[in-house]
Amino acid sequence: MKGRVTVRLKPDVLDVEGKAVSGALARLGFDDAHGVRVGKVFEVELGDVDPAVARERLEAMARKLLANPVMETFSVEVE
């Protein structure tokens, strides 16, 4: 079972890295790319477990370490 945790900055947190990427894209001619936000993806191998259990484990990992709830939100997928 493979899982993926995606961590994003909360919408109200200024993403200076995203702003810099927007600016760089515009310089390449992608001036239609507004509001780029940079996040993180964690791919996790979980072995042979039930998808519901895997989801629960990934959510616990995100809450305890992978995301900081002060500034970030997360979502979890299993495949």
Partner: peptide, 10 residues
């Protein structure tokens, strides 16, 4: 409480 984020000026 709180967090320390990337400097505004990068």
């Amino acid at each position: 409480p709180g967090a320390l984020l990337r400097n505004a000026g990068l």
